[in-house]
């Protein structure tokens, strides 16, 4: 589903990604863990063109999003293709990024109507079903400002799912939440994993990484240090850096 090869990215003098490669298959739930500043969020954002890579190759479902030729020149697909390929991936942000001027329901149906050209009547049943799934049908006419952080994040998940993506990217979805609110968001994500959604989750929630993900990737200093099935990673981390990080986190 996702094939990233040798992604390189620098912000000014700082090399944030030093050649990151990762392959994700259909139905995989991959957790990316690592210390702050390790480049894990940047890596995620490079996959759907929120950040532009300096070098490397990104393929989404066999289609080339970006590629680098022998001379080292990195090229992206033409704009229309780029948008079409990126639409296969839904994304959930740390800061929710709901549209504050739209109600919960309007947040969810905005893209299906504007981007896919669906009528309101055509998308409404699905939107309500999604809201029921994340347990927020009763909030459909509320504005985001009236919701708790956990509720906002669940709306954000429903909003992304309304575009029927094949892959869901989560960028620290619970990091901005009070501890007692993370549970409800993780429940929605777990449910999604059980439905065999392909998921890539940058997270500090070790419990989620251990229990829900099929694979865990440990990143540090712009590189993937270790990548293993979740059970093994937590039971027997191989690399000393991974061990140090996990000891610190658990």
């Amino acid at each position: 589903m996702i094939a990233a090869r040798d992604l390189r990215k620098r912000f000014g003098a700082v090399e944030v990604l030093k050649g990151v490669s990762l392959a994700i298959g259909k139905g995989d739930v991959v957790a990316v863990i690592g210390p702050s500043g390790s480049g894990k969020s940047t890596f995620l954002r490079c996959l759907n063109h929120l950040e532009v890579i300096d070098a490397g190759q990104v393929e989404i479902e066999g289609e080339t999003l970006a590629t680098t030729d022998a001379a080292g020149v990195c090229r992206y697909a033409p704009d229309a293709d780029l948008r079409r390929i990126c639409r296969k991936m839904g994304m959930v942000f740390q800061q929710f990024n709901l549209f504050p001027h739209l109600t919960v329901l309007q947040n969810i149906i905005e893209a299906p109507i504007t981007v896919k050209g669906l009528t309101r009547a055509a998308i409404l049943p699905q939107a309500e079903e999604l809201l029921r799934k994340v347990g927020l049908l009763d909030k459909r006419d509320s504005y985001p400002a009236r919701l708790s952080g956990g509720q906002k994040q669940r709306v954000a998940i429903a909003r992304a799912l309304a575009m029927e993506p094949d892959i869901m990217l989560f960028d620290e979805p619970t990091s901005a939440l009070d501890p007692e609110l993370t549970g409800e968001v993780l429940r929605s994500m777990r449910q999604l994993a059980e439905e065999r959604m392909t998921m890539l989750v940058v997270t500090h929630e070790m419990a989620f990484a251990r229990e829900v993900s099929s694979r865990v990737v440990f990143m540090d200093d712009g590189e993937i240090v270790e990548e293993r099935p979740a059970g093994e990673m937590f039971a027997r981390p191989e690399h000393p850096r991974t061990r140090a990080f996990l000891e610190h986190m658990l």
């Binding site: 948008r83 990126c86 942000f93 905005e110 504007t114 992304a160």
Partner: peptide
């Protein structure tokens, strides 16, 4: 307007004009 609004719109597939 926060950058996150543009990013959320972009990942949902909206064009710059939209």
């Amino acid at each position: 307007i926060e950058r996150g609004q543009y990013e959320a719109a972009k990942v949902l597939g909206l064009t710059y004009g939209q």
